[in-house]
Design a protein around this nucleic acid. Structure first.
Lengths: 343, 343
DNA sequence: CTGTTAGCGCTTTCAC
DNA sequence: GTGAAAGCGCTAACAG
């Protein structure tokens, strides 16, 4: 604890503590000469106002809490970065809590009870630290209704949602549709899709985009081209083998994530099918590894930075008591690389 | 600001604020019945003690600051996770500051002046928030001496260092040596190495390990097997083409990072050299993508979680005033996958 | 076993 | 243009 306080500054500069406070905050006019003297003493003594005392007195902290389900999961750091970006601009401060869910409970996301405890503790601690609002970052898009109570403090969810609170999510359906549109424009019509786990929201939404594209572009609809994966590479591998063994195989495959696309690449390689010459592949997520694959994977990039930024902005607006204008959902952006060609 | 305070609880429970404080902190014996009444009121009113007031009074925050140069760089999240892990055990709290260096100044790491400003601000803010110490996480191992002054507060650096402060770093030389040892045990003796940028510390250290292995295992020393890369995939690609064109090409290549290993794989593929049958490859860093390459890359994994954990522990010991026992450096761990075979 | 009260470091009203 | 002093919410010494 830097034991040097406003009193020390006041004494050394031969003014009252009030005056020191005034020059510090610019709350009132202070004679030029006095101000300079104070400033100099502050500088000399490396004085830093005690933020706890300030908050206590001001009854404001200008701080919001961020609860991250797990900072080591791929989507989280970039979202945090977006929040920081916006918070810096708004001169807001961030208190980050890492729930460490992946390490602590593994993948049992659906069992709210398994981690309610952690979430409640995090909220409680943040509230105790007088945050003015909270942003909750999920590791997987899902319904978190009833996870925890914030006792009236505003909360914004991102990369997940609840039925009662505001949340910022990117547009999965549009992304899926746009990926299809890209493939169609390249000349494909026999396009297969490999889904993620069926009980997941992004899977459902991305299916919607797929069907919408199939309908709008009047593509031949063939149920054989629809495969159920589980987000893991192995499922991409297995289903691709099936797909390529079809009497009339697809000319393109859209994978609901990049990891399964790895399996697609592997299966095609083994079967001597050249990508993109004989088979186009498009992934989802723009994971870091996607550009290191051979061929470099074309994929839908998630607007992670943007949803973080928007979440912060939304929370800030709520704190200002502004009308919650419903912004358009941030959209995914296609990253064109080398795994797609015309058939 | 949850306007409900200890006074409200005291009034409703018909005791003094002191008593409330005592039951809250267990600082003194309170009659069972009284305690229960107080606890119940607290529960009912969702009372959370104001942490700012507590800190002010206690003159302790139990909080340390963490300055991350950039949370979106691959090594940082896992280090943060390690810090969290240890902090949870020690019942310490973390204030995380993200400098966003990668986005703000790009890769000009060596120009301290370009970001001194950001670092100083971060320290200043943290000090103002009464942190008891600081951990600084770099995005690249390098000398940061003179970056910023912490005015006497203890600071521990990790994934970077200064000449005057404690720092936690993993053992690069040992890792490089061990990778070589692994290759030698597999039967290789003509082992090439592709370095990172020459002005970087890890490059130098990893060279040391290489030379040490060459000497100890009495490998034939051939300068032609030593290639200068720059950490990027392209340099791995280029140098591998040179290596494979040698009169007597190497049977194994050790790459100083996984990204350059991608270039190696690509070059070998183009030249029709099978990995691992005709050429073994070992990478460095265990980046997420390394297991998605074909073949899955064998690589040296960095003990990121561990250095975070150790940094927290070291700082804690310093705060306790304990002797700074010099711990052994955390060591890298070989991740055996499919890119290495016997020649 | 419980209460009274000073005071942590700061901001801000009121007075001059 | 400046200062005195109250009080933010809490803890802990002191008193009973």
């Amino acid at each position: 604890m830097s034991s040097i306080s406003i009193k020390d500054i006041a004494a050394k500069a031969q003014v009252s503590t009030a005056t020191v406070s005034y020059v510090l905050n610019g709350t009132r006019n202070v004679k030029q000469q006095t101000r300079e003297r104070v400033l100099q003493v502050i500088e000399e003594m490396n004085y830093k106002p005690n933020n706890a005392a300030q908050s206590l007195k001001r009854r404001r902290t200008n701080t919001i809490g961020v609860i991250a389900e797990d900072v080591t999961v791929f989507n989280v750091p970039e979202i945090i970065d977006g929040i920081n970006d916006c918070a810096d601009r708004l001169d807001m401060h961030i208190l980050l809590t890492n729930l460490r869910l992946d390490k602590r409970i593994g993948r049992s996301f659906d069992d709210l009870d398994a981690y309610r405890h952690f979430a409640e503790n995090a909220v409680s601690e943040l509230l105790s630290k007088q945050v003015e609002g909270i942003i909750y970052i999920g590791v997987h898009p899902r319904d978190l209704t009833g996870l925890c109570d914030t006792f009236g403090k505003p909360i914004v969810y991102t990369y997940c949602y609840t039925q009662n609170d505001p949340s910022i999510q990117y547009d999965d359906e549009q992304a899926s549709y746009e990926a299809m549109e890209y493939l169609v424009n390249k000349g494909h019509s026999r396009i297969a899709i490999i889904s993620g786990a069926l009980d997941s929201i992004p899977s459902r939404l991305r299916f919607n985009g797929y069907y919408k594209a199939v309908t709008e572009f009047e593509l031949p609809f063939d149920p054989l081209l629809i495969k159920m994966g589980d987000w893991e590479a192995e499922s991409g591998y297995r289903t691709t083998k099936e797909l390529l063994s079809l009497a009339v195989p697809p000319t393109a495959i859209m994978s609901m994530n990049d990891v399964m696309a790895v399996g697609i690449l592997r299966a095609a390689h083994e079967m001597g099918v050249a990508i993109p010459e004989e088979l186009s592949v498009i992934g989802f997520d723009n994971r870091e590894f996607s550009e290191y694959l051979t061929p470099r994977l074309t994929t839908m990039g998630l607007p992670l930075h943007e949803i973080g930024y928007e979440a912060m902005e939304a929370l800030s607006r709520i704190l200002q008591g502004e009308e919650t204008a419903i912004d358009p959902k941030p959209v995914c952006k296609l990253i064109e690389r080398d795994s797609v060609a015309s058939p």
